[in-house]
Amino acid sequence: MNWIYKYDEKFNYLPGEEIEIEEDADIPKGYTNVRPQDGLYKGKYNETKKAWYESATQEYIDSLQPKTLPPTEIDLLKHQNVDLLQQLTESEKRVEEQSKTISELIMLLNEKGVI
């Protein structure tokens, strides 16, 4: 027994129309024993090359992809939290640098006898 795969008059693959025939039976018109490869969106059969190819446009394929959902309130809060933590880290770094600068200035003023 062999599986054969159906296509319409424009050679478009008709999924779900596969049938099984005896090994020595003739393949009916509109069928082929060449199995379409996985992953085709709109398979089309080339009788001359005895091969299937993708006939769907990229726009059609993209239209089938799930739409990205807008971020949830939790996602927005997580992003805001990351931003705030980054700002806090930068502020702490500036405070540390200013503290070091002030200490150096006090030492210089002390050395010069100003204070």
Rank of each mutant, 00 (worst) to 15 (best):
Y45T: 01
S63G: 04
N110L: 09
Y60V: 00
K10N: 12
W3K: 11
Q98T: 13
W3I: 04
N12Y: 14
S91C: 11
E54A: 05
M107G: 03
E92G: 11
N81K: 09
E96S: 15
G30D: 01
V95F: 11
K10M: 08
E90L: 06
K67W: 02
N12G: 10
I19R: 13
V34I: 10
E9F: 08
M1E: 12
I74K: 14
K10I: 02
Y41E: 12
L14P: 00
L76T: 09
Q87D: 11
K44P: 03
Y13T: 02
N46G: 10
K49M: 09
S55K: 02
I4M: 11
L77M: 13
N46T: 04
E97H: 10
Q98G: 06
T89P: 00
Q86R: 12
G30F: 02
R35K: 13
S99A: 15
S99W: 14
Q80Y: 11
E92Q: 15
I115D: 02
I115M: 04
I27Y: 05
N46K: 11
Y7H: 14
L109F: 13
K100T: 09
P70D: 02
Q80I: 07
E104Y: 03
Q58H: 00
N2D: 14
Y60K: 04
E73Y: 01
I61T: 15
Q37I: 15
W52D: 01
D38I: 14
K44H: 11
K112V: 09
Y45K: 10
K44S: 13
E90M: 10
K93L: 06
F11P: 00
Q65H: 07
L105Y: 03
V82S: 05
H79M: 10
L76R: 13
G30A: 07
G39L: 07
N12H: 14
S91E: 13
D75M: 15
E9K: 06
K112Q: 08
T72Y: 03
K49H: 05
T68N: 14
S91H: 11
N33C: 05
E47P: 05
N46Q: 11
Y5W: 05
G43I: 00
P71D: 05
P36T: 00
V82G: 03
M1A: 14
V82Q: 10
E20L: 12
K93Q: 12
G16P: 08
Q98F: 15
K112I: 07
L69G: 04
E22S: 09
Y31S: 04
E104F: 01
Y45A: 08
N2S: 11
Y41W: 08
Y53R: 02
P66E: 02
T89S: 12
K29L: 12
D26C: 01
Q80T: 08
T101G: 06
Y31E: 09
E73L: 13
Y60W: 01
K93V: 03
M107Q: 14
L109E: 06
E104T: 07
L76M: 14
